[in-house]
Design a protein around this nucleic acid. Structure first.
Length: 455
RNA sequence: GUGGUCGUAGCUCAGCAGGUUAGAGCGCCAGAUUGUGGCUCUGGAGGUCGCCGGUUCGAAUCCGGUCUUCCACCCCA
């Protein structure tokens, strides 16, 4: 019989207890802040109907969706043409009705529409769950990863954008990560496309703009030209490349640039308003207005936000923005929302890189009882019950193996105290307590032991 | 999805112009110490050299494929 080799699908990972304790530290920090801002938790299924997911993330996004093969005889759905001249895209649509969720925002929009009668608007929810993308794995890029989302739907107020940025600031200062928060507005990008008379090429332009820091202005210009955007239009963008200096200076230049675009000016106005609210709030993280920040997701319509770690190449740690009509595709118009999403796995990698995890995060068993045999073990069980009731994390070694082995186990697990209760201690009604750090050992009564460990 | 890269003991890695029984450190197990971990000493176990196929008298070493890792592009948390 051939043995199966233990392995995992590409891009997925197990988490060891050590890692889970650290991951939970991140989740707890984030959850606590979400709750403090009055957000309510929800969960949605790992799989959604494929129709819910398709078309929401752009062409690239559709490619990265994991599709689930239908149960039963899924081949029935195919006709002769499919067999003769197979087209993977159309075939997959016929044999897959469901897919794994790609993010938490679209399922949330679906949730809102479906539960509209039960939800008090504006609805503030948070959601921490894994998502799946069929991307090629790299550092900071996994096929299964956790997102931590907060969204407000049913409110146009820019106060929501302000709160999102506050939450970002609190989360990252809470975790001790130094970040830069980048802010832009889709309306500004749309205005730019308008001003250079290339509105219909908005996506190409934003994708190009997004690459400026990475490949440089000249290469971006080349790319735009190669995509068929006229040289005259590309040249008109020059003021955007040259943006320098303070936020106010950038906005001033952009106002002149966008003067002819109503949409663009609206974007500027919104951005200024958010910044005005933020000003007296004194953020810890650096806030930047970045006119080249694009964000790929198609559904953003207003503010767009991205957070990157300082002094480390790690993509974005958090991203989000305003989407005016996500629920519209599910038949519920006029419902605007803003939301952000924290990438827990990237946050973990950054914290690991900078050694930002506190030691106290590892809180496990404090006292181990050595097992001397059935009679002694039964006696220890009774002591354990009282010790646990006193709130002390304690356990009994399950097998009556050599003391040395049991001591080694305690040592390897970092358990600070060991209790030895053999025949002699049972007779005396005492417990021999050994402090593993100092090596000191003394005989104590149960109450003395409890008060010792409580310190 | 395109291009490249890595893969030897549980871990980190050495070995490789093809040639007897594939090594080290750490870890693990046992003993020195039959009611005591960490330190020390002694001994031991553990490898289809990612997987499949090819070239060769002979392959960990060369070639092809495949899977995995990491990287660039694309895109993104």
């Amino acid at each position: 019989m051939s043995k199966e080799k233990a392995s995992l699908p590409k891009g997925t990972r197990d988490f060891t207890p050590d890692q889970m304790i650290r991951r939970n530290y991140i989740f707890h920090t984030i959850t606590e802040i979400f709750q403090r801002y009055g957000f309510l938790p929800i969960e949605t299924p790992a799989m959604e109907n494929l129709s819910t997911l398709l078309g929401k993330y752009g062409e690239e996004g559709d490619r990265l969706l994991y599709k689930i093969l239908n149960s039963g005889d899924f081949l029935k759905a195919l006709d002769k043409a499919d067999w003769k001249d197979p087209d993977p895209a159309s075939i997959s649509m016929k044999i897959c009705d469901r897919g794994l969720r790609y993010d938490l925002t679209v399922p949330f929009a679906r949730f809102v529409v479906q539960h509209r009668s039960e939800i008090p608007f504006p609805f503030r929810r948070y959601q921490i769950q894994p998502v799946w993308r069929a991307d090629k794995p790299q550092r900071g890029r996994y096929r299964e990863f956790y997102q931590c989302d907060v969204d407000v739907v049913g409110s146009d107020s820019l106060l929501n954008e302000v709160e999102m940025i506050q939450i970002i600031d609190e989360v990252f200062t809470g975790l001790g990560i130094s970040v830069t928060v980048k802010l832009n507005n889709r309306k500004i990008l749309a205005g730019m496309a308008e001003v250079i008379e290339q509105s219909e090429r908005l996506t190409d332009i934003t994708v190009g703009l997004d690459k400026v820091q990475k490949i440089g202005v000249e290469n971006v210009k080349k790319e735009l030209l190669s995509k068929g955007i006229p040289a005259a239009s590309v040249e008109k963008l020059n003021p955007v490349w040259d943006l320098r200096g303070s936020i106010d200076m950038k906005l001033k230049t952009m106002k002149e640039f966008l003067a002819g675009s109503e949409t663009g000016m609206q974007g500027i106005k919104e951005t200024e308003e958010v910044l005005d609210f933020l000003k007296p709030l004194e953020m810890v993280s650096r806030l930047e207005v970045d006119m080249t920040l694009a964000r790929g997701l198609d559904y953003y319509t207003g503010a767009i936000i991205e957070v990157v770690a300082d002094d480390m190449e790690m993509g974005s740690l958090c991203g989000g923005g305003r989407y005016d009509n996500l629920t519209g595709v599910f038949g519920m118009e006029g419902m605007s929302g803003v939301g952000i999403s924290f990438g827990a796995d990237r946050i973990y990698d950054v914290m690991e890189h900078f050694s930002l995890f506190p030691d106290e995060a590892v809180h496990s068993t404090r006292l181990l009882f050595i097992n001397f045999g059935a009679r002694e073990a039964a006696y220890c069980l009774d002591l354990l019950k009282k010790i646990r009731r006193a709130g002390i994390q304690a356990e009994l070694y399950p097998d009556a193996v050599k003391i040395k082995k049991q001591m080694t186990y305690a040592h390897n697990r970092g358990i600070p105290f060991v209790a030895l209760v053999g025949e002699e201690e049972m007779k005396e009604g005492a417990v021999a307590l050994k402090n593993m750090a100092t090596g000191d050992q003394s005989k104590l009564s149960l109450t003395a032991l409890i008060s010792e460990l409580r310190r």
